[in-house]
Amino acid sequence: MKKKNLVCIVCPNGCDAEVLMEDGSEIKILSIDGCTCDKGKEWVEQELTHPMRTIASGIPVEQGDFKLVSVRTDAPIPLGKIFDVMTVIKRRRVKAPVNIGDILVPNPAGTACNIIATRNVKFTE
């Protein structure tokens, strides 16, 4: 049996989870302690098998009232894919106007998420 400690990132409470797992290379969870909600427990299970994250960044906008439109992934992506997704984001340029929720890149780097706008950017001359 082995023990692993994790800090839950689901919400700002940041619960300290203590997980007991079977020995061996395959991940078999025996118990999860310290989580104060079910979402947290789900997250811990996922974190041990295939950790997922959301990321936020910015994309330059032409003729916008902001230089950058802020963006985020609309669903978590695999932790190991973050820099691949960033590469896609860094290449993208958009034209104003942009609205919150607009999909600016669908399925970046083959992930099951979209890069969506998180700011309204108006067109300016």
Partner: peptide
């Protein structure tokens, strides 16, 4: 909030993880 483009805002208020600009909007 306009410059806080990371997510994690609104979990209590809207029950979803928004970025700063979205929460403000």
């Amino acid at each position: 909030l306009n410059q806080c483009i990371h997510d994690g805002f609104g979990l209590h208020t809207f029950k979803e993880a928004l970025t700063g600009p979205e929460y403000a909007q």
